[in-house]
Design a protein around this nucleic acid. Structure first.
Length: 409
RNA sequence: GGAGGGAUGCCCGAGUGGCCAAAGGGAACUGACUGUAAAUCAGUCGGCGGACGCCUACGGUGGUUCGAAUCCACCUCCCUCCA
């Protein structure tokens, strides 16, 4: 099956330079790249869409390139931002790059050059300014660049746009040209916010090499209510298990809006459309099954099967009527002597369920504090030995934030 | 380089000497209703102590004053216009 059709059916194609042309190109093995700028220590759930797109391209017989923007991150992409990003040091960037690359490589098979990894610092950092201006800069029209949404919004809003950022587009275009020249890359996949940057590269390749190239943009991952996907009270949903533990990651997907389940299953899992159709044919409460499958699959892809199993077991234990293995749920160890001196307030704060005693007091006053699934209304209620069951105490804040205190001795 | 405007709590945004822990909105949190969903309604939303209390806070540093987010000086950053 043609990769373009697969991607279209699954909702990956937000816009493309020419559907017929892209489809035609993909009838023979094609090399396609997506760039990730290492501006954070971890990728987040928004990156899943382009990663899955690359994965599908590979499954359909094409060769993906994972391009790490070790060079472009030194400059900073203005796309989609209303203000400048702080400039990162080279060390930070390199550290970020290393961990992001590891996360991203899970999505593809790199055996026998079936997929490639590159770092644009390798060619961008040795560029000579004058040569670059003459060879590349000459082909860009500032007039045209200014019409791009990414720059126009910044200018219209009277927001600062530095020359540094303005150059980003040239660098990204040059990346593609480089990849075209060195490994024959004729396609770029990216989030829709990268559209203008991609087009710039396509034009550059056509101009300098007379070659055809195409762009495939994925939709931005947003929730049914229009919010950017992946926002939680704790910030982004990261792929790094240190930043977002697999249990929390799993829970995030279980809790998505009903209206998002089908779309997310198509984008973020490898399940067939038939399976997905089946899962989503139900409505109302029965859709929860589809959400559990979604959570299980995505967690499995990102954190591996065992972690997905554990997260699922913990969720089952907490929300599915007890029993099961809770080990994956958030927990803290505490000595019995210490626990014995704690009030409910102390416990909530120590467990991290509340940021301060005031917040814990508020939670309790509002009836949101539970010990072993029993509501406790007195903030000063001592925990003590009596509440320990099977060596642990189960705390709950509100409807679904759980924490386990494991008594250590 | 010159002239002017601005920086407020997670975000937006009022406040221009005491009545300001700081209006209003959004986000968020809790409860009710439910399906670990959405919508709706109600409440909460700096820290610490059981409240009327104290502490920290309105870009930074000093100063004026009984008293400053509000006035003055210098500094940092941003914006606008001029060159």
């Amino acid at each position: 099956m043609n990769a373009f059709d697969v991607l279209s059916e699954r909702g990956f194609v937000f816009q493309s330079t020419d559907p017929a042309g892209v489809r035609q190109m993909l009838t023979s093995p094609t090399t396609a790249y997506t760039g990730f700028d290492p501006t954070a220590a971890s990728l987040h759930c928004g990156h899943l869409v382009p990663l899955m797109q690359l994965a599908w391209l590979q499954r359909c017989g094409n060769r993906p390139i994972l391009l790490c923007g070790g060079g472009t991150a030194l400059v900073g992409d203005p796309s989609g931002k209303t203000s400048s990003r702080p400039i990162l040091t080279r060390d930070e960037i390199n550290a970020n790059l290393a961990s992001q690359r590891q996360q991203a490589m899970r999505f593809m098979d790199f055996e026998a050059d079936r997929a490639l990894v590159a770092n644009n610092a390798d060619w961008l950092c040795e560029l000579n300014y004058i040569d670059f201006l003459r060879d590349i800069g000459a082909h860009f029209s500032v007039n045209q660049m200014l019409t791009a949404e990414i720059y126009r919004t910044r200018l219209d809003a009277d927001e600062h746009l530095s020359f540094l950022e303005f150059n980003y587009q040239l660098l990204q275009a040059y990346d593609w040209l480089h990849l075209y020249r060195t490994v024959g890359c004729t396609m770029q996949c990216a989030g829709s916010d990268q559209w203008a940057n991609c087009l710039a590269g396509m034009d550059l390749i056509r101009r300098l090499e007379g070659a055809e190239a195409h762009v495939l943009c994925t939709p931005l991952l947003v929730t049914a209510s229009g919010q950017k996907m992946g926002k939680t009270e704790k910030g982004a949903v990261w792929l790094d298990p240190e930043l977002t533990p697999p249990y929390e990651f799993f829970q995030y997907w279980v809790n998505v809006d009903d209206r998002d389940v089908e779309r997310l299953l198509k984008l973020l899992t490898f399940l067939s459309l038939a399976q997905i159709g089946e899962l989503c044919s139900a409505d109302g409460a029965a859709l929860r099954d589809a959400k559990r499958v979604l959570a299980y699959e995505v967690t499995g892809i990102v954190h591996g099967q065992p972690a997905a199993e554990e997260a699922q077991a913990a969720a089952q234990a907490l929300f599915g009527g007890g029993g099961g293995d809770r080990s994956a749920m958030p927990s803290t160890g505490v000595a019995l002597v210490e626990l014995a001196g704690w009030s409910l307030l102390d416990a909530l704060v120590h467990a991290g369920l509340c940021a301060s005693r005031g917040e814990a007091r508020r939670l309790t006053a509002q009836g949101g504090a539970y010990v072993n699934e029993a509501r406790v209304a007195d903030p000063e209620a001592p925990l003590g030995e009596g509440v320990v069951q099977d060596g642990e105490v189960l705390l709950r804040a509100g409807k679904k934030r759980y924490h386990r205190l494991v008594v250590t001795g």
